[in-house]
Structure formats: structure tokens, C-alpha cells
Simulated assay, not measured.
Amino acid sequence: MADATTEAQQNPWLYGQDGPPSGIPHPGGASAAWANGSSAGAPVRVEPSALRQAAGVSRRLQGELRSTVSHAEPDTAAAARALSADCFSSGAALTQVLTWWKVRWTSLDNRLGMTADRLEATAAAYRSTDASSASAFKAP
């Protein structure tokens, strides 16, 4: 298993980081590529339907994760209890691993839900802004 530093770099969401791990170059080599990169000043094309579709994918993944965990968790807990009942020390170790994974499953589940919520909110905001801008430019 990788050490904590390597794991934090490979899985930044595990450690509450919203950006990429340090040491990974940004696109265009700029510290804020969206502000100074090669696309600065280029028109932005937003497709709320694509944002909603991405939110749907995130929700689907969240459902698949929940389904898989709902099967794996009780089976693993039962195996740990059986090993502990037979006086194997691996039962306690398996319980610790299950506890460790449950925290990560919950974190990923929350992250997928937040991602879907934010994508849907962004799509709604773009639609609302577009509609209000269009009505503001209508002839009196």
C-alpha cells in the first residue's frame, strides 16, 4: 500500500482538496490557465443540457456505488465476525479495513452527490441568466 503522501497525491478528494495535487502542471503552464492561458478572451460556450447530463452520470455512479457497498459491507462484516469467533486475529484486521473503507465510501458518495447538485445548479443558473438577459434585450 502507498504511503499517505502518495495516496494524498493520487486521491486528493480523500483529503478534502478541491484542486489537483501539487506537482501536477496546469494546462498552458499558467498558474490560472483560465485567466491567462491560450484560451483567454475566447468565447465561452455553455450547454446546460450537457451539465444536466453530467449530473445524471454522477447520480448514476452514486447509485452504483451504494448498490455495490450495500452488498459488500454486510458480507465483509460477516466474514470478520466469523474469523473473530474462530479466534483468528485477521477478523479484527478485517473489521478495521471495513471501517476504513466505509469512511471512504461515504466520502465518495457525498462527493458524487455534491458534484451532481452543483452541476444541476450551474445548469439552472445559466438557463435563468440567459432567459433574463434575453428578456432585458426585447424591444419595448
Rank of each mutant, 00 (worst) to 15 (best):
residue 44 V to A: 08
residue 92 A to Y: 06
residue 73 E to F: 09
residue 44 V to I: 12
residue 71 H to V: 15
residue 50 A to C: 04
residue 68 T to G: 05
residue 11 N to F: 15
residue 66 R to A: 14
residue 5 T to I: 13
residue 4 A to K: 12
residue 104 R to F: 01
residue 107 S to L: 14
residue 82 A to F: 05
residue 122 T to S: 14
residue 63 G to S: 09
residue 8 A to G: 08
residue 15 Y to H: 14
residue 1 M to Q: 07
residue 119 L to H: 09
residue 112 L to S: 06
residue 12 P to S: 11
residue 29 G to E: 03
residue 41 G to D: 02
residue 54 A to M: 07
residue 35 A to D: 04
residue 33 A to T: 12
residue 131 A to M: 03
residue 104 R to M: 03
residue 41 G to N: 04
residue 48 P to N: 05
residue 111 R to Y: 04
residue 140 P to V: 11
residue 100 W to V: 04
residue 19 G to T: 14
residue 93 A to D: 10
residue 79 A to Y: 04
residue 104 R to D: 03
residue 104 R to G: 05
residue 48 P to L: 04
residue 77 A to K: 09
residue 134 A to P: 02
residue 7 E to F: 04
residue 43 P to Y: 02
residue 113 G to W: 02
residue 30 A to S: 12
residue 44 V to R: 04
residue 47 E to H: 08
residue 77 A to N: 08
residue 107 S to M: 11
residue 38 S to Y: 03
residue 96 Q to R: 15
residue 127 R to I: 14
residue 126 Y to I: 08
residue 89 S to V: 10
residue 111 R to K: 11
residue 121 A to S: 11
residue 96 Q to T: 14
residue 101 W to V: 15
residue 68 T to M: 10
residue 124 A to N: 13
residue 55 A to F: 01
residue 36 N to M: 02
residue 105 W to K: 03
residue 22 S to W: 00
residue 78 A to S: 14
residue 77 A to V: 10
residue 41 G to W: 00
residue 59 R to A: 08
residue 97 V to H: 05
residue 69 V to M: 07
residue 32 A to Y: 05
residue 12 P to L: 07
residue 138 K to E: 13
residue 93 A to R: 12
residue 52 R to W: 00
residue 70 S to V: 05
residue 122 T to C: 14
residue 46 V to L: 08
residue 131 A to W: 00
residue 138 K to D: 10
residue 125 A to K: 08
residue 64 E to D: 14
residue 17 Q to F: 02
residue 95 T to D: 10
residue 54 A to T: 07
residue 71 H to Y: 10
residue 26 H to P: 02
residue 71 H to T: 12
residue 130 D to Q: 15
residue 128 S to P: 00
residue 136 A to R: 12
residue 94 L to I: 08
residue 70 S to I: 06
residue 32 A to W: 03
residue 37 G to C: 02
residue 56 G to V: 03
